[in-house]
Write a protein that binds this DNA or RNA. Sequence first.
DNA 1: CACACGATGCGCT
DNA 2: GCGCATCGTGTGG
Length: 204
Amino acid sequence: MGGRKHTSATRGTGNRPRPLKRSFYARPTLVVARGLLGCHLCHRVGEEVRRARIVEVEAYTDDAASHARRARRTPRNAVMFGRPGHAYVYFTYGMHFCFNIVTERDGVPGAALIRGVDGVSGANGPARVCRAMGIDQRANGADLTTAETLWVERGRRRKGERIVQTTRIGIRAARELPWRFYLAGSDGVSKRDRTAESAMGVEY
DNA sequence: CACACGATGCGCT
DNA sequence: GCGCATCGTGTGG
């Protein structure tokens, strides 16, 4: 047995969490959103740790469709203006939660909305991600860099796996902005853009 | 204080 | 494709 310290047996689940650091999140929202694809969202629920692979993300800054539109701070969106690497969870339509990760440097609003994950069943769409992962309002404001209960770990992007960039879902304002990213061919993608996929030659 | 509506998902037409 | 559940939030009076 050579000098290999990390085997697949010691590197995978069951070891100490290796949460993404704050420096990962303290970057432009589009960069972070794209970079989260393929990473693993982890949530401790009691003794259990739920893990899922992030496959669809949207970016929100101070654009017209954002809760932080016009860079206006309110009680609800305040966490979007705070330190990067924290959870922004909001309640909507009287029954759903949506989970975001705060981006940009402290004081600059930004968040990446997790819209789809693979690895848990029925997690295409932001509300279903929260339901499947057990994320609710209690997670709002949580620091994801400490790996206490909620965190993200670096993942592998499969060879040849394509990233599709297209418009965001379920908004009216600024719908032309191509601020949604997803991994082509993943089950957890809420809505495919066939036009974009064929334009970039995606096949499967 | 009143009210319109939403970064959704589900069931029915 | 359309209506609707269900309620916190933001905005305006």
